[in-house]
Simulated assay, not measured.
Amino acid sequence: MLLGRLRDPYINYRHRRLFHVLRVSIALTVTFAVVHLFPLEHSSWALVSTVMVMGNLPHIGGVLDKGRQRLLGTLVGAGIGLLLISLPIPGRGVQIGALVAIAIATWLVFSSRQAYAGLMFAISLLLVIGNGAPDFSVALWRSADVLIGTLIGIAATLVILPHKATDVLRFMLADNLDRLARLYHAHTSATSAPGVDTRELLKATSALLVKQRGLVDAVHREGRLSRGEVDELISYQRRMLSTIELLLESHWTTREGHDRINAMQGLRDQQHSLARDLGTLAFQVRTGQPISTDISPFELHSFAELAVGARGTDGRMLFSPSGYLWLNRELARVAASTAQRLASLERLPSKRLRRRAGRHGLHEAQRLDSKEGSQNDPGSH
């Protein structure tokens, strides 16, 4: 029972800081034990490597990516270093060769995803050549220590309370969809929902988009979603956020335009339905369910006459009602595309999350949200 709770993705996400501290501490303990039980020279490099690989990355994908780059950079850098000090190069030829190799590596990894591998290449190469003297023993020990520490860090991340970047992305996506639903509902309600600070919600939603962007490589490394799929989900969120922000920040230049919108019977019902659908979509993502939310497009034909033929008291055309309807239609269209894309991701749903969703109150929270939304929806009475 306890093991099931500790492997629950939602529990791991909520307590990821504590679990990460435990993982790093246990990994360092294991590394300390290894360097004390076995006669490893320059053993401090093993300890440093363990910390460097795990660092501030609490999820599997990030550590795998960083560990892979560290191993690659270490092996190639150490190999070239051993080659340089083994060749009969006179004078400062070893240092010159190392500078040329580092320059080439820096050029190749500049502004790429392999920048950390390039850094480890340079560090390993410099550690091996030292002052240029052909000391193979020191070079081999330093390389071995780096490899041992890196492997211990990777193993600890995979075995000890494993935490996946895919689950981090899942919960961040669900949180953002919830916030978008709340923002849109606050905008479409006759009176603003009490306690809803739109500026803070907009800021929090934007911040989570930035964090999701930083997870792209880690999620891809875990093999459940590709970089393109994650980029697409982030793009949909950004477009919905921009549209809702435009709706929130829009101001009517004339009273006539506002009255025209209020006269559109059924518009508020469609808006409230879209807000509820966004909330339901967030719930399905958070609880690992297959996505079944079907978001209907906005039906604007019945409002066409009121919008297109709108004129002010001075006889001029009013363009604001048409623009307002277009923004709502675009929001519904992007939300529907988001739901369809999520439904097509066969590897995103989680059986473990579905089994344990009721244990941490997610089903009850969804029922309360639905009840509150119905009470605030004028069309439901």
Rank of each mutant, 00 (worst) to 15 (best):
L3A: 13
G4F: 09
L6P: 03
D8G: 04
R16Q: 09
R23Y: 08
I26L: 15
L28M: 14
T29L: 15
V51D: 02
L57K: 14
I60H: 11
L71C: 13
L72S: 01
G81S: 03
L82E: 00
I85K: 01
L87Q: 03
G93K: 02
G97F: 02
F110H: 14
S112C: 10
Q114H: 14
Y116S: 04
F121H: 00
A122R: 00
S124Y: 00
N131T: 07
N131D: 05
T150E: 01
K164N: 13
R170H: 05
M172V: 03
L173G: 04
S192V: 12
P194R: 11
S206Y: 08
L208T: 07
V210A: 14
L215M: 13
V216C: 07
R221E: 11
L225Y: 04
S226Q: 08
S226L: 08
S226V: 05
D231N: 11
L233T: 01
I234L: 15
Y236G: 06
Q237P: 12
T243C: 14
E245M: 14
E249S: 14
R255V: 12
E256A: 06
G257Y: 02
R260L: 03
H272G: 08
H272S: 04
H272T: 03
T280K: 15
L281P: 12
H301W: 08
F303I: 00
E305A: 07
L306F: 08
G309C: 03
T313P: 14
D314W: 05
L318W: 07
S322N: 02
L325A: 06
W326K: 09
L327K: 15
N328E: 12
A332Y: 06
A336I: 07
A339D: 07
R347K: 15
L353P: 10
R354I: 11
R355T: 09
E364G: 11
S370H: 12
K371W: 10
K371M: 13
G373W: 11
G373T: 09
N376Q: 12
H381R: 10
